[in-house]
Structure formats: C-alpha cells, structure tokens
Design a protein around this nucleic acid. Structure first.
Lengths: 301, 301
DNA sequence: ATAAATCATTAGTTTTCATAATAGAAGGTA
DNA sequence: TACCTTCTATTATGAAAACTAATGATTTAT
C-alpha cells in the first residue's frame, strides 16, 4: 500500500473545481457557469479540464457545442454536490456561535470503555457550552428510555440490528478472566454478570448450556465491581473484544469455554424533536467509533 | 436562485489544508506532521496559518512550544476528518469500476411524480450497469415487502415517521380537481381512490366525516387512470402538494372541502445484507429529494 | 451568407505555494 | 549560567498554478 508516495499526485478534490463542475452541469454550459461563478469562460474551461486530468476521466461529452455529462460525469455530479454541501456545512459550523443546551446519551456500561471517554472528551472540548448527561443502563432499558423520550440517543449492544438502529460495528464476544487465573476450570462455572437484563448474559448461558456445562451467576453488580471480581479470579465473563481491559486476559478456545456469537454495537437516535446538538453528537459517535476500527494501519513508510 | 456574493471570498476549504491540520492535531506537532505529509515544517506552519486566516479563527493555542487545539480547532478536527473521508470516498468511486447488479426500489404510485423520474434518470446515467426494479404499491404493502426482503429500499407516504424510517420531507395533503370543474359541489362527493390501502384514503374520509359530508368512492384504479378521471371532472382526490400535476387544480378552503393533515415522505432501507449499490441509491434519493425542496420558492395558489 | 454564440487554446500576468534558511522561544543538561 | 536541542514562526526566493484577455474553430440562428 502506498501511503504518501511522492509519485502519487495527492488526490485532493478542489472544492472550487467541484463548484465549477456542478455549475457547468446545471447550467448546461461553461459560459453560463462562468457568469454564475464570476469567472471568465476560459477559466471555467480550464477548471473542468484540470478536474478531468485529476480524475483521469472525461466528464463531459463535447459533441458539437452541446455539453452532456458522461456516465462518470453524472457519477461525479451526484457526489460533488455532497462535497460542496459538507464544505459549506463545516463553514457554517465554524462561523456560527457554539451550540448550547443538553444532550442525554445512553450507553450500556460494558462498552463505555474504550469507546466513549475520548469521544466525550473531544465533544466537550469542541462544544464547551453543551452539557452531556450520560445514562448508563442495559441495552433493553436504554431502548425503552429512548422511546419514552427520556434520552436523545443511545448506543446498544445487540445480537442483531433492528429497524431503526444503525450498526456501527460488529465484534466477537469473548470470554475473559484474570491472567494466570484458574477459575474457568471450576464447575459450575462462576459467571460474572453486571445486570440481569444484560444482553450478553443470554449469549453466555446459551453457549454453556449447549456445551452441557454447569454454571452459577456471580452478581449482579456494577460493571466496575464485576471487573474487580474477574481480576480477583472470582469469576469469568464475556465482553466485546475491544472493550476488554488491558489487565485482563482473553480466554481462547483452549480454555474449554464455548464459542460465543458476535454482537453488534448499534446507535439509535430519537427521530422526533431532535435538535442540532443531538445530531452533532450522533455524527461524532458514528465517525469516531467506526474510525477507531477501520484504520488499524496508517504508516508513513 | 443562488447568487454569489462578490464580497465573500469564496469559502472553500482546501482538502490539503485539512490534511495538514488533522495531521498536526493528531501528531501533536507541525514538525511531525510535515514528516508524515512529506512537507517541510515551514510549509505546514504556513498551511495552518492559511487555514486560520481563512476561517478567521485560532485553531491552536501556541503556549510555549506545545500546540493544543482551541475549542474551535477541536470542532474543526471533528469535521475536517469527514471532509477528507468524503473526498477519499468520491475519489474511490471515481476510480473504481462501476457498480453492477440489481436494486429493488419501492415507491407509492402517488409520489412517483415529480420525485422519481429525475432521480432514476440520473442514477441510471451514473451507473449504467445497474438494473433498477421499480415496485409500485401502497405504502403499507411496500413496508411489508421490505421486511419480507422482496425489495431493498422504499419510499412511503405516512402520517408519522416511525422508528426505522428516515423522514425526507413533510408536505400538506391537498384536494385537487379539474380546472373549471364543479364536481366538488356534488353530494355525495365522488372521491377518487387508486388503492383501498392507500394511506391518503383514511385522511380524506376522516376529514369528510368530521365535516358531516357524504361521499362515495370512485375506483379503485391505477394512479394514472384516477388522474384521468379527475381531469374529466368525474371525481376529486387528495395528493401531496408537490405531486399535483400541472394540469390539475388545487382546491383551496373556498371549495368547501375539509382541511387535511400533513403527510411525510419517509425512506426505509433494508438494514441487513444491503450492498453498496443500495446505499448509493438511498444516498441519491436522500440528497435529491431534500435538495429539490430546499431550493425553490413556493408558488401560492 | 452573415452574425452570434459556444468551447478550446494560447500568451501573459498575477497569485499561490513550497523550500531553504533563519530567527526566536522554551526545555535539557552540565 | 551557559549550551545544546527541539520546537514554531517568518522571510526571501523561485517555481508552479491559475486567472484574464484575446483568438481560433465550430455550430446555430437570422
């Protein structure tokens, strides 16, 4: 993979060129586009040419003096508008006064780390006047709270992504225990569980039952307390792979524990009466969560 | 119409500047950012300065030799990444081979016009190898088809926007008849209705009943046939304001017909097993439908 | 046939941008 | 304190980019 190879002409689409292109496509001509953009016709012609050179694609069919979009031109048109819109949206955000108000966010306790702290920190820095209320319960309870209007948006961990949810990522559920521990050989297996309605509970017990393994529940308790019990080798439990704390150990198949089904992290946003701040936070959660898991490598060379 | 104010120095955010900014923020320094981008430190410093001048905002606090983001810098960081991501996404779309396959789209007959023809035309031009199957039924039937997996995405007209739906726009339901006609004075009122499960039917009849007005259903028949009956002054019906054909007339309150509740145009996309082409079409429908109604000024009737 | 309109191209000028070098400021360390 | 290192800011400079204005080529309209 080439990262920043000098031979690659950095592939940045100049928003000004995008504007010229869209204007030309919409007015049907470069002369008209020039009038619209306060440019000479020649400048527009050159801009289109530059864009075509950049993308290595013909954007217009120049038959006679009529310009018609090529397939690739049409394709670009559909997306160039989005680029311009995003550019203008950012411009608006940067010039407008900062948001104020309150956002009520729900998160299941077991995925607060490692996702949320950096997101909330960044959001807080970006919008210092916005107050964030963090609501920490089970996925089921959070979905109820959302429909009741008690919170504005929420993350959940679920084994599917129902209508109305937006899937941010999918991860394996893994067993974890204390490094050097031996509690997972005990029978019945002590299963740590923060919350009776925890979505992972059913998955764990289902796996064990299918295996014919006996178990007993340790808990309920808060998520942190449960982690302490794991660390003390008093129980095992299951979490999403990426939310396993560094001082605990993932128990592989050789531990004798059953395989578990993957889970999804879903996002729900209130559809009615939702304000800009809520959308802004939702956008950030989307971006950051997916980012943190899409880009494992990015090296200079 | 969009005018370009001369006094505003066109506010285009150079993606290269955004890259320099993000690299600086992420590495914590301009020297390191320069290494990453294959630029000298001085160039990065100038780029940041240019960006700050452009936005008229300080992006970093330069205390001592430590760079920390200001609130506005953090705000930009969150969105600059999106701009870069969109830029790269477009680049990918333009350089990759075109999509192939089939998309199954559902649309209620009464909002095909004026929304869909231009969208489908543009999409078809942009992705000539993609086949679009247009499924035309009532909103209720379409939602069923979606959950059954028979279609990939659908538009609906509904009086609310339930979980799982995305509201694209809200419009008034209006009565319409033939210009110069007189059928709406007839009693009982002949109400044209394309489909017994049509979502507008309940709204119309509810309005008439509340008014104590007698009615009879004309139909069912296809949407086009129904419009022909309207044009022949054989019946009246209700449609969303913007889908009223130009040769028919909107009947205002002075026609004696009852006021109707507003409706929403919602979009549903299959959440599971959905491929890139479906997402691409959904994106276009979103963009174009909202675009087409953000721009034009309303014509009062 | 003539005029008008359109896009492409070219020449020339202005503007932009990166480099390289330097200055200035702050943190280490002896 | 003096000295060295490591940053960022600034400046001069040359190269490249990009605009205008003018021109040419082609097509449509009168």
């Amino acid at each position: 993979m080439k990262t920043n190879d000098l031979s690659v002409p950095l592939r940045n689409i100049d928003v000004a060129l995008a504007r010229a292109f869209v204007a030309t496509a919409e007015t049907g001509g470069m002369t008209a586009a020039g009038r619209l953009l306060n440019l000479t016709q020649g400048a527009v012609s050159q801009q289109i040419k530059r864009l075509e050179d950049l993308l290595q694609k013909e954007l217009f069919d120049r038959e006679h003096r009529q310009l018609t979009l090529t397939a690739e031109g049409e394709r670009l048109l559909l997306h160039a508008r989005r680029l311009i819109a995003l550019n203008d949206e950012i411009w608006g955000l940067m010039s407008a006064p900062g948001f104020e108000g309150t956002v009520r966010l729900g998160v299941p306790g077991d995925i607060i780390r490692p996702f949320l702290p950096p997101i909330l920190r960044a959001f807080k820095n970006a919008w210092p006047k916005v107050k964030i209320e963090l609501n920490c319960e089970s996925s089921v309870a959070l979905k109820k709270a959302l429909s009741a209007g008690d919170i504005d948006l929420t993350l959940t961990t679920e084994s599917d992504t129902p209508q109305g949810a937006e899937r941010l990522l999918t991860e394996d559920l893994v067993w974890l225990g204390c490094p050097g521990g031996r509690i997972w050989h005990e029978d019945p297996l002590p299963v740590g569980n923060a919350n009776p309605s925890c979505t992972f509970r059913a998955a764990m017990l289902h796996g064990l039952e299918k295996q014919g393994r006996d178990w007993r529940i340790v808990g309920p308790s808060g998520h942190e307390v449960m982690l302490a019990k794991i660390e003390a080798d008093l129980a095992v439990t299951a979490l999403l792979q990426s939310s396993v704390p560094p001082h605990l150990e993932i128990l592989g198949p050789d531990s004798g524990l059953p395989a578990l089904t993957p889970f999804h992290v879903n996002l729900y946003v209130r559809t009615s009466q939702t304000n800009e701040v809520v959308q802004e936070l939702a956008q950030q959660i989307r971006d950051q969560v997916t980012r943190r898991f899409a880009a494992p490598e990015r090296k200079a060379g």
